[in-house]
Design a protein around this nucleic acid. Sequence first.
DNA 1: TGATTATATAAGCGTTTGATTATATACTGT
DNA 2: ACAGTATATAATCAAACGCTTATATAATCA
Lengths: 113, 113
Amino acid sequence: MLPIEESALILKLLGDKTRLRMMKLLDEDACCVCEFVELFQMSQPAISQHLRKLKAVGIVKEVKRRQWVFYSLNETHQYYPLVKAILVRLESQQDKLVSLTESGKRIDCQIEK
Amino acid sequence: MLPIEESALILKLLGDKTRLRMMKLLDEDACCVCEFVELFQMSQPAISQHLRKLKAVGIVKEVKRRQWVFYSLNETHQYYPLVKAILVRLESQQDKLVSLTESGKRIDCQIEK
DNA sequence: TGATTATATAAGCGTTTGATTATATACTGT
DNA sequence: ACAGTATATAATCAAACGCTTATATAATCA
């Protein structure tokens, strides 16, 4: 059973449409900052700051590969089951990743989930 | 599958510790405004305003009985399954209701869930 | 009827949030 | 080494948020 106050902090993080989209995308595949920038049509600092918040609580992790930083969900996090229970109910963003690939802007991080 | 943008609005509502406590309490039993005021030791307008936000999206409903307004979860709401999936993972607030009863401040709304 | 209790709403205010621009750091490839 | 690419951080600012106080409305009860 999760403590309510701490849970509220996690839900607040997910209660932003940009971060929630990010989390759903990361649930489907690891992504790097520049992919989010392309997908969301937002400034790179805005993306980085959202990712920083998610990383600050540990619910996402990062791996550096060449010049990129790839983010993925931290499946060992205490709140991962809660987060996952939410994400599974959200519409897939897979088509967005496919579009990215088709436009040649997808970056293969070669990290196995 | 729930749309992400709308889901983010629901999660933002739950991403406040007062509202999340309210929702968990309502998941366990209907409550009226003055009970929340007593439980949370917050001003009555603060409580009313949180409830108004929850009612605005329809995830809680109200029933008037004598001089009280009892709130409860709207189990027919489109987002109820998502909300419930979150609430079941949170620590029970049942002990808070028991304390209220013991201090003689519990109000029996006589509404069946 | 007048006092009390319960709730809602409006206005005001300090804090937080999410974006932007500017700048710094780091890695890549020629 | 240098130009280009990728990311992070800092400063700034308008908008949103959550609380308070003040006030209005409605039901209860003596």
